[in-house]
Design a protein around this nucleic acid. Structure first.
Length: 420
RNA sequence: GUGGGCGUAGCUCAGCUGGUAGAGCACUCGGUUGUGGUCCGAGAUGUCGCGGGUUCGAGCCCCGUCGCUCACCCCA
């Protein structure tokens, strides 16, 4: 094989590409129903946007970005996440000067130069929302509820929602001092100390048992929250309870992007292995300002389409039936082919999914193809049918046939399909 | 970036202590007149990931390299 896809990219091809499409469309439909509008964004941005927005010390920026120089000598980076680019666009086009909160969604590919793993590709797909210009805790709850509804619409059950509050900038500065003091008192190896220096919170995420034990005695950020942050966080929890959305408070939750403040959440799936986060997000108080906008608060999430698909497959809830062909047309002869082509055009105009058997194959072979396509109905068009003007509509599942005139095929099929 | 496992037909894999490749599934065609899912028959398909080395001879041994995969790390 001469050419292969670049290392670490996941491609979706039939038949699985249908499932991918279904996952993405399902997640998006929940978003659209909540009044979020599309932002169609570039997949690359000025490198500086990410270093300033996401944070230069984060792993995402410091070692996972696809950065290159374009022909004009500009430093360009393939987007490693969605929030910063979305906010840049909101600011650039003045969406934050209109009705607030500005509510937008995006969908597309993101890029991180990481070592590939189950549920982790170098190009991955996310759908996400951002709501900018309101610090109402009810908005936090709604954003979380949209993501939750998306996963439930897929039929997922074995996931949990974890939430916490990271407080405001001052809170975290105070907490950081205490946490670092605590960590200094621990006996840690060099690599771990380096990680702690970059972001002490990371140690909460360490998978080693001994580190987890040590860190269980560490001070908790939640105990440092200001009065205002605590009230906000409690209000969010109250709304979530009212919405009957189960959640768990995870005071040790760690997010790898620097901009998060206040409410922060993550959806974790039980069946996914090491890369178990299927979505996450939170509030970002200083971010708008950080990248040159007004000092507005905002909140958003990103949902992993690839991982949601893996989760749906693991739970066995992928909806295959949603994509079956309604009718498979088998023309016998040149004249029949012309009829089949125009008939298919008409049927498709009525939102029916129609396929035609191509290639002058034996009827038996064409029937086999029809069977493999998963088509619900088959119609054969030969000289007999052309002369009589009526066809046998065969239901593949039962094998039964009904005689239908060509002119009433559309109405008959539409009615039949309602009963599926 | 670090470590483990693996790379043989489209897919899943077999290939004994080295003698230049096989199975099942899938695919195409057929089992006499225009009807699928079972069954039977026939057929096509591989530079055995790539490059070098050892050898009379390598899919099997050695080195390198690329890729896949799982984990660390990190996150969607």
């Amino acid at each position: 094989m001469k050419y292969q896809a670049p290392k670490g990219v996941i491609e979706y091809f039939p038949p699985r590409s249908r499932s991918f499409e279904w996952v993405r469309a399902t997640l998006l439909s929940q978003i659209k129903r909540s009044g979020y509008q599309l932002l169609q964004l570039p997949v690359f941005e000025d490198t500086e946007l990410f270093t300033r927005g996401v944070g230069a010390s984060t792993d995402v920026v410091s070692k996972e970005m696809y950065t290159f120089e374009d022909r004009g000598g500009r430093s360009i980076t393939l987007r490693p996440e969605g929030t910063v680019g979305a906010l840049r666009s909101i600011i650039e086009h003045g969406l934050d000067r209109g009705a607030l909160p500005a509510k937008v969604f995006y969908s597309g590919a993101f890029f991180r130069a990481e070592r590939p793993q189950a549920g982790r590709g170098r190009q991955f797909y996310s759908v996400g929302v951002e709501a900018v210009g309101s610090d109402d805790p009810a908005l936090d709850a709604e954003v979380i509820a949209i993501a939750d509804a998306g996963f439930r619409a897929l039929g997922l059950k074995q996931f949990k929602l974890e939430i916490t509050s990271l407080g405001d900038a001052q809170t975290r500065a105070l907490y950081r001092v205490d946490l670092l003091a605590f960590i200094e008192g621990l006996d840690l190896d060099q690599a771990t100390l380096v990680r702690a220096e970059i972001n002490p919170l990371r140690l909460f995420d360490d998978k080693r048992e001994e580190i987890r034990d040590l860190m269980s005695k560490a001070p908790k950020l939640l105990d440092y929250l200001s009065e205002e942050s605590r009230t906000h966080f409690e209000a969010v929890q109250g709304y979530l309870r009212d919405l009957n959305i189960d959640f768990e408070i995870n005071p040790r939750m760690v997010r790898g992007l620097d901009y998060y403040t206040g409410t922060t959440f993550e959806f974790v799936h039980e069946l996914l292995g090491a890369q178990s986060g299927i979505g996450g997000g939170g509030r970002y108080d200083g971010l708008m300002e950080q990248i040159g906008g007004q000092p507005l608060s905002g909140i958003g999430f990103g949902l992993g389409v690839d991982r949601a698909l893996l989760a749906a497959e693991a739970e066995g809830v992928v909806d295959q039936a949603a994509f079956l062909t309604d009718l498979y047309l088998i023309p016998l002869g040149t004249k029949a082919k012309t009829v089949a082509l125009s008939l298919s055009q008409e049927l498709r105009a009525h939102e029916l999914t129609v396929e035609i058997a191509f290639g002058d194959r034996a009827l038996k072979t064409a029937m086999k193809s029809a069977d493999k396509s998963g088509a619900r109905y088959v119609v054969i068009i030969g000289d007999t049918e052309l002369n009589s003007g009526s066809v046998d509509l065969k239901q593949m599942r039962s094998g039964e046939t009904t005689s239908v005139t060509l002119s009433s095929l559309v109405s008959t099929l539409s009615a039949e399909l309602l009963t599926w």
